[in-house]
Design a binder for these strands. Structure first.
Lengths: 136, 136
DNA sequence: GTCTTATTGGGAATCGTTCCCATTATGACA
DNA sequence: TGTCATAATGGGAACGATTCCCAATAAGAC
C-alpha cells in the first residue's frame, strides 16, 4: 500500500456528476442506485464509469463505503479533507447516515488487538437501526 | 423476525459434514472454501447444500457470519447454545478469529443510537489485523 | 489547432449466491 | 421390517453486483 499519492486526473463531466449525485444526499447509496439516478436525470454516463469514480473517491478518502449485509456496497461522501476517523449510524431502511465518533471504541479495539498479539489493526463499526422517519 | 422457532429437521450426512468442516477450524471460512474442502475429502455433497446448511447454522445461532470487504461471506461456528453476544478479532490473512467481548461498546452503541432517535438497533464490530503467525 | 493519452461506455466475462425441480433418502408409522 | 410422505439433495440454470476489455472520445498541454 503506497502512501497516498495524488495521480494526475482529468476533470470530466461524468466525474462531477457522480460526485454531485452523492453530495445531494446524506445517505449511503449503491453504485447501481447512483447510476439509475444519473440516467434518470438524463446524464450520459455508463455504469462502469460510475463504479470507477466511486472507487476513486474511496481511494482519495473522499467517500466511505459500507458493505451491506446482502453484499451490496454503498457509498457516501464523508467530510472533506480532514478525514477524521469516524463510524456511522445507518438507517437500514432508507440508508440515511449520521457520522459518529467513539474514542473509547478506538482505544478498546487497539487494546484488545494488542492483547492477542495482532498487529496492523483496523476495524469496522457500523450501527444499524431505523431512523425516526422510517420508524413511524 | 419471528421468535427463534425450531423447525423439524432431518439429520443427514451432508449436514453433519458441513458442521464438521467448520468445527475443524477456528477460522472464518467461505462457502466455496468449505465446499472445496469437503469435495477434496471425497464427500459427496453439492454446493447448494453447503450454502443451505451454512445458512441454517446462522439462523439457528450456531454460526457467525462476517462479510469480507470483497463481499464474500465467511462462516464460523460460535460457542454452542449460550449464544452470548460477541464480536471478533480476525486475521485478515489466514482468517483465524478470536471471540471478544466489549460491554462498553454495546452500551455506547445503544446510547448513540438513542441520542439520534434510531430504534430497533443492532451493530457490527469487527477488528481485523495480522495474527502473530501471519505477521512473522 | 494539434497531438498525446486519460477517460469513457457498452457489452462480455466473472464470481458468489440463489433458484428450480426431478431424484434420493430420512423418519414416522403400521 | 416394509411402506410412505416429504424433507433434503445436487447440478445446472438464473441472477445481480462488479470487473474487464478495448475501440471511440475528449481533456489539457504546447
Amino acid at each position: 500500500m503506497a502512501p497516498t499519492q495524488q495521480v494526475k486526473r482529468r476533470a470530466t463531466n461524468q466525474g462531477a456528476a457522480v460526485k454531485e449525485a452523492l453530495a445531494a444526499e446524506d445517505t449511503f447509496r449503491s453504485a447501481q442506485d447512483v447510476y439509475a439516478t444519473l440516467r434518470a436525470n438524463g446524464e450520459k454516463i455508463g455504469l462502469s464509469t460510475v463504479y470507477r469514480h466511486l472507487q476513486i473517491f474511496v481511494d482519495d478518502g473522499l467517500a466511505d463505503v459500507i458493505h451491506k449485509p446482502d453484499g451490496e456496497s454503498t457509498y457516501r461522501l464523508c467530510g472533506d479533507a480532514s478525514t477524521t476517523h469516524h463510524h456511522h449510524l445507518v438507517c437500514r431502511q432508507c440508508g440515511k447516515a449520521v457520522e459518529i465518533e467513539g474514542p473509547a471504541v478506538e482505544t478498546w479495539a487497539d487494546k484488545v488487538a494488542a492483547q492477542n498479539g495482532f498487529t496492523d489493526v483496523n476495524h469496522t463499526v457500523e450501527i444499524f437501526g431505523l431512523c425516526t422517519a422510517c420508524a413511524a
